[in-house]
């Protein structure tokens, strides 16, 4: 005679015990991601400081943000930075991948060199480039003197500081687009090129008729990934320029940091963070859209 309550218990146990496997992670997910997100959204609608929340102000912080020249300048800087770095990294990354997609020893060494800077922390990268660019004895200044020019203070010239931060960033991150493109190039079937060679197609023709169409999904992926990454620019200007000169290198994230941790206007900083979140979420949706069409392409 089967023991009915025990069986029912074991059915319930079987039905629910799977939760135990996902529960530990989900606890961290809720505690370290969802709750802080909620706190941030709530804060963005209050005026508060270090000592606590003062008042609920609705969307006032957002209205204030879009009338704040410093914030608007930060948004502008962020877009400029994305517009400089993302196309440059995509084009350079693709060019490197096209040249280095071969099995020679030299190509392997060169690939390793172009990826090496990616593993450095932003601290080391910023330090290296400050030491390259300082007008008193930086390598750029030494070279300028060698050809008889006056050294330029790249990081304190308003027109040059953001481009200098962009060059630093490209130097730091060029490895990622390169390896993404290399992975895509490996997937192109060889016989396509063999057939084209039989038809006496030129190399240029092959590039535009075979290679680029075959990797168009990866080109889109690289663009979106880089847009998301470069929107989050923070450490480089924080360490290299402090946002100056004259606010010309302050991106949104640095604005959030300074408003939150230097001026302790937490509500205002949280509102700026939500604006950034919205921008990144848009880009992430584009990324999801691209990756879900993987099979259609």
């Amino acid at each position: 005679m089967p023991d009915v309550p025990a069986m029912r218990r074991s059915v319930t146990w079987n039905r629910w015990s799977g939760v135990l496997f996902v529960a530990p992670y989900c606890a961290f997910f809720v505690l370290m991601l969802l709750i802080p997100l909620g706190i941030g959204i709530r804060l963005s609608m209050t005026r508060g400081d270090l000592f606590g929340i003062e008042a609920f102000v609705g969307l006032d912080n957002f209205a204030r943000l879009f009338a704040d020249p410093v914030f608007l300048q930060a948004v502008w800087n962020t877009f400029c930075f994305v517009l400089i770095t993302v196309p440059a990294m995509t084009v350079i990354g693709l060019a490197l991948a096209l040249v280095l997609n071969r099995t020679s020893r030299l190509a392997a060494i060169l690939r390793a060199i172009f990826f090496a800077s990616t593993v450095l922390s932003v601290t080391v990268v910023a330090l290296i480039w400050r030491l390259m660019l300082i007008p008193e004895g930086g390598l750029a200044a030494v070279l300028a003197r060698a050809i008889g020019e006056q050294p330029v203070a790249f990081l304190s010239e308003q027109a040059l500081a953001l481009p200098a931060v962009a060059v630093t960033t490209i130097w730091w991150g060029i490895g990622l687009p390169m390896v993404l493109f290399l992975a895509a190039l490996q997937q192109i079937p060889r016989d396509l090129y063999e057939a084209a060679a039989l038809d006496r197609a030129s190399k240029t023709r092959m590039l535009f008729s075979i290679t680029l169409p075959a990797i168009r999904r990866t080109i889109a992926l690289v663009l979106v990934v880089e847009i998301i990454l470069q929107f989050q620019l923070f450490g480089q200007p924080h360490l290299m320029t402090g946002g100056g000169p004259n606010n010309s290198t302050r991106p949104i994230v640095l604005f959030v940091y300074e408003t939150g941790w230097k001026q302790w206007q937490l509500g205002y900083a949280a509102a700026a963070a939500q604006v950034l979140f919205a921008l990144i979420a848009l880009a992430a949706m584009a990324q999801y859209y691209l990756s879900s069409r993987k099979d259609a392409a």
Binding site: R15, C26, P36, L37, Q232, A273, I280
Partner: peptide
Amino acid sequence: LEFPGRRFLFVIVLLGLAIPEQAVIIG
């Protein structure tokens, strides 16, 4: 494994991929 709410939880976690650090760091 099969358990009630599995699909729902997984979708929520996937949505979490889109939350940048900047949006949660103050909280």
